[in-house]
Structures are given as C-alpha cells and as structure tokens.
C-alpha cells in the first residue's frame, strides 16, 4: 500500500459523499423551480402586449407597467384588498395576542375548550367557514359587503395569530420578567420593558401572516362579499374571459416589494448574528 492512498480519501469515498451531498441539493433546486415557475410566468406575462385576454404571448410591452390602473376595476379591487387586509390585521392581531397571553401566562378553567375553539377554525375547510357564515348572514338578513368580509377574515385569522404569538411567548423565559421585578420594575414596567420587546417579533410575524392570509383569501371572500370586490375575487371572476395584464403587474410588484422587505430584514439579521 502506497502512502499516497493513505493521505487522501479513496476515490470511491469521495464520489459517494459528493453524490450524497449533491443529489439532495439537486432535488431542492427542482423543488424550488416548481415553486417559483408560476411566479416567473406571472411576471413575464405582465409584459405581454395582450390587451384584454392575457393568455398567449403577443409581444413585449412596458405599457402595462406604465399604466397599472389601465384596466377597469384592477386598482379599485387592489385598494379594497389592502384596506381590508390592514383592518383585519389590526383587529385579529389584537384579539389573537390577548388570547395567546392568557393561554401561556395564566392557569384557568376552560383551557381545553379554548384550545379547541382556536384549533377548529384551522381544521375547517374554507368552503365550510364561508358557507356557514353566509348561512348566518342570510338568516339574520345582514347585507353582504365590506363588513361581512371583514368579520369573516378576522374570524379565520385569529387562530393563526394565537398560534404564532403563543410559540414565541412559550419560548420566553418567565424568569426574565421575575428578574426585572427583582430589579424594582413593577408588573406594568416589566411587561413593557421586557416581555413586550421580546414578544414583538412574534407579534410582527403574526401580523404579517394575518395580512397575507387576508389579502390572498378568495373562497371565504367569495361567499360573503356580495358586490364588494377584492383583488383575488377580481382575478377569479375575470379568469373566464381573460385577466388583464395589469393584474400581473400588480401581483409582480407586490411580490418584489414583499420579497425585498423580507430579504432585507433576513440579511440584516444574518449580519447582526455574525457581528
């Protein structure tokens, strides 16, 4: 046996470990391609010179980007969706955070029932949530519109907020608060200076989640909106006769804005950890 083979891993070992490392990475790349292909399509077709029916590629144009409100109802529905999602975010984040605090920080009777009430909306298909609320509104003759959609969205967002905030809160060491009180902070100060800043990222994540759930919801909205149109509803309704390219412009712009925001915060986090 030569000393050469002793100082380098044998070829077989290197090939096997290269394959083991890279087969999985290759698979992941394909999975990402699958996830992002429709996004790329949406983006590319935002430049389609298609007029009203944006199905087949007709040629490149920047007109859609220059005039995103060019098609009827596009911008109106986007504004509706944003206003709605903002309202839903504020309401559901407040209600959900309060519940999360009660669940993590207090011992009380009825915990099981509460947990079940939080869990069930997440385990119920949207058609059922949508149709049951509609059944209620029809029975008590509530006119459908912005407020019925608002009520519906807050209802299904609460559970997600509770779960997100709860996860953060449960990983928080209660001794930190006790230490603050040991250092002469009263309960309110301990909450404001210690608990709240530490839970804030969880609450922010919950708010973000609520916003995106509300903004992108279609099924529940479709049941309870009446004449009120949100962006997803607008897209679905126009899908039969052709979606204007402006919808792709709006969606692509939202995508890049959101992606940029998240990436910037992630990279900043990475930097902070390294420093």
């Amino acid at each position: 046996m030569s000393t050469d083979t002793a100082t380098k891993p044998p070829v077989g070992v290197r090939v096997r470990s290269w394959f083991g490392d890279n087969a999985l990475k290759f698979y992941a790349v394909i999975a990402f391609a699958y996830l992002l292909l429709p996004v790329a399509y949406t983006f590319v077709f935002s430049f389609n010179d298609a007029g009203r029916t944006n199905i087949v590629w007709q040629g490149f144009t920047l007109d859609n980007w220059k005039n995103p409100c060019g098609a009827p109802q596009v911008c109106e529905s986007v504004v509706n969706s944003i206003v709605l999602a903002l309202g839903v975010t504020i309401m559901s984040t407040i209600l959900g955070t309060l519940i999360a605090f009660a669940l993590v920080r207090y011992q009380f009777r009825g915990r099981g029932t509460t947990n079940l009430t939080i869990f069930l909306p997440m385990a119920t298909p949207e058609v059922v949530l949508g149709s049951s609320l509609l059944a209620l509104f029809l029975n008590i003759f509530v006119p459908l519109g912005f407020w019925t959609v608002f009520i519906a969205h807050v209802m299904f967002c609460i559970s997600f907020v509770v779960v997100t905030v709860k996860a953060r809160l449960a990983s928080l060491d209660p001794r930190l608060e006790q230490a603050a009180m040991d250092l002469y902070a009263n309960e309110r100060e301990a909450f404001r200076r210690i608990t709240l800043p530490l839970v804030a990222p969880g609450i922010a994540a919950a708010a973000l989640l609520a916003f995106s759930l509300s903004f992108d919801d279609f099924i529940i909205t479709n049941f309870n909106s009446g004449q009120f149109t949100t962006f997803p509803k607008f897209v679905y309704v126009s899908a039969t006769r052709g979606i204007p390219a402006q919808a792709n412009v709006i969606a692509s712009a939202m995508f890049f804005i959101a992606l940029a925001l998240v990436l910037v915060s992630q990279i900043r986090n990475m930097r902070r950890k390294e420093a």
Binding site: A28, F32, L35, L36, L37, P38, V39, Y41, T42, F45, I55, S212, D216, F218, F231, P232, V235, Y236, A239, I243, A247, N248, A251, S252, M254, F255, A258, L259, V262, L263, Q266, I267, N269, M270
Partner: peptide, 25 residues
Amino acid sequence: NILLVLVIAPFFVSFILRTVAWRQI
C-alpha cells in the same frame, strides 16, 4: 433563512393568479 423565504415567496403572488399561470404552463 433565505431559502425559507423562497419557500413562502409564492404566497406573495395571488393564489388565483398562480393557479391561472399553471393553466398557461
């Protein structure tokens, strides 16, 4: 973390639009 962002990135484009994109694909 960046890869995770890529997993949720499709959520930023309306779910209906992505489904319509599949129709084209």
